[in-house]
Design a protein around this nucleic acid. Structure first.
Lengths: 118, 118
DNA sequence: TACGGTACTAACAAAAATGTAAGTAATGTC
DNA sequence: GACATTACTTACATTTTTGTTAGTACCGTA
């Protein structure tokens, strides 16, 4: 989410591909390095910022923030802020967010099969 | 496939994630910008280098080469060279390559659902 | 008044992915 | 001998993604 250059070839290619290939439309949304792990963690219910961090100990706060923002912008999850001090923010998958489950399932299945042959 | 730095934090993170999250194991393999479109094209049967290029008019020869190499290295497809001039090279999905189909299917399903809500 | 806790933000740096432009080999055809 | 064809390779440039480090605001508690 460092701002992207909307005049670049890469940007144009991504757009064009997403229009023609539905798979790419999806991977453009859930394709970041940490997106799927975050969604996976949230599949079992809403979590606070710090709780997600605990589940993914290697993620930096910056990356977590960026990916959460992107996912929120794409309606994959919602952000709920409580007016407390210290702050409390809860992240929860939307309906369509929960529907990532079959994708994750198939990715897992494939990984298992693939590991067998390597 | 510009050579990656095996001492980088990013490299370590990818490894660790792939070990803990099967989804990431898979996306590390099929995650490039052009990987899924290439595999999609090959789902209907083997194709020559130039034929893939026709299906994906915006891909550069460099990217196509790189992604094909990566996919081959990961046993997703095979490369068959014919000793002819001009050269002829055919790419074909392996068994596990063909098994990407359900993943692609679910990604497509999700894209359709997602488009409805946006 | 200093400190802890939470969820961030900002400036900068490094790495990774992608794109651009040009060139190569081999051989058959004109 | 020049040219076309095919599947690449190479050197370099740009863009995108990810990582590093150091902050910030708020308020209750010691």
């Amino acid at each position: 989410m460092s701002k992207i250059k909307e005049t670049s070839t890469n940007f144009a290619n991504k757009q064009a591909l997403a229009n023609e290939c539905l798979e790419v439309y999806s991977t453009n949304i859930i394709g970041g390095q940490w997106s799927l792990p975050i969604c996976y963690a949230l599949l079992s219910g809403k979590l606070r910022f710090g709780e997600i961090k605990k589940v993914l100990p290697n993620i930096t706060e910056r990356m977590l923030t960026l990916q959460l923002k992107k996912l929120e912008k794409n309606n994959v999850l919602t952000r709920k802020i409580y007016a407390e001090v210290p702050p409390r923010v809860e992240y929860e998958l939307t309906t369509i967010g929960y529907e990532l489950k079959p994708i994750i399932k198939e990715l897992e299945n494939w990984a298992i099969k693939h590991k067998k042959i390597v």
